[in-house]
Design a protein around this nucleic acid. Sequence first.
DNA 1: ACTACTGCTACTTTTTATGTAGCACAAGGA
DNA 2: TCCTTGTGCTACATAAAAAGTAGCAGTAGT
Lengths: 110, 110
Amino acid sequence: MPTTTPKPGAPVRGSKSGRPIMALLDLLGRRWALRVIFELKDGPMRFRALQETCDQVSPTMLNMRLKELREVDIVQKTNDGYCLTEMGQDLWNLFEPLRGWADRWAKRQG
Amino acid sequence: MPTTTPKPGAPVRGSKSGRPIMALLDLLGRRWALRVIFELKDGPMRFRALQETCDQVSPTMLNMRLKELREVDIVQKTNDGYCLTEMGQDLWNLFEPLRGWADRWAKRQG
DNA sequence: ACTACTGCTACTTTTTATGTAGCACAAGGA
DNA sequence: TCCTTGTGCTACATAAAAAGTAGCAGTAGT
């Protein structure tokens, strides 16, 4: 049974409920998913450029994550490359304050 | 080379920079990490209870994530079980709006 | 001493991710 | 035309991470 893309409304790995928040946590908990969103936040990028900024992630993985993120309408493909959809942008905006938190966190750890 | 806990200031898997935000994305991108934080947000839980609410995640994994999250001061152990630290609570608060987003997302997907 | 619960560790199997090669297509010269 | 360059991948072998299951050591109670 191959892994499927977690979608709201359908049960996902790590949750029988299908609650949207669980599907989301599953999706974002996959390696490189958050990073891809992060790298796309400022505008479109082509496949290989994206690969580079994601520290040479393997094309296999990158393509897998891109497929998943496109399936659930967080990322889309345009003539200029991959970019966030409107939903995707909204999502990243929610993550925006993370940077501030991460900086405070860094200070505390010394 | 076993995987180490990503900490701000040190280079991590997926980033040479050691930028706190990258360390954070790496940490949270590990399976069950977000979920554990999610489950602990309302108060302390014991090991086995946590295991159950996380859909019977294997103790191996749970323990690994708990160790990582404790190392970086997001989770702590108390007499009543595991719970979020102050930093951890702050972190979850940032995620709080995710639920609303996820619900809108669910509607759009039909 | 026996039971029950708690927080794990050990071990095997399965799933995911990495690393590397290279293919098919398109555009642009020479 | 044939060669180059870039782009978006796929294939496949290997390594790392996670799942699944068993069970142990410590503590509290009876």
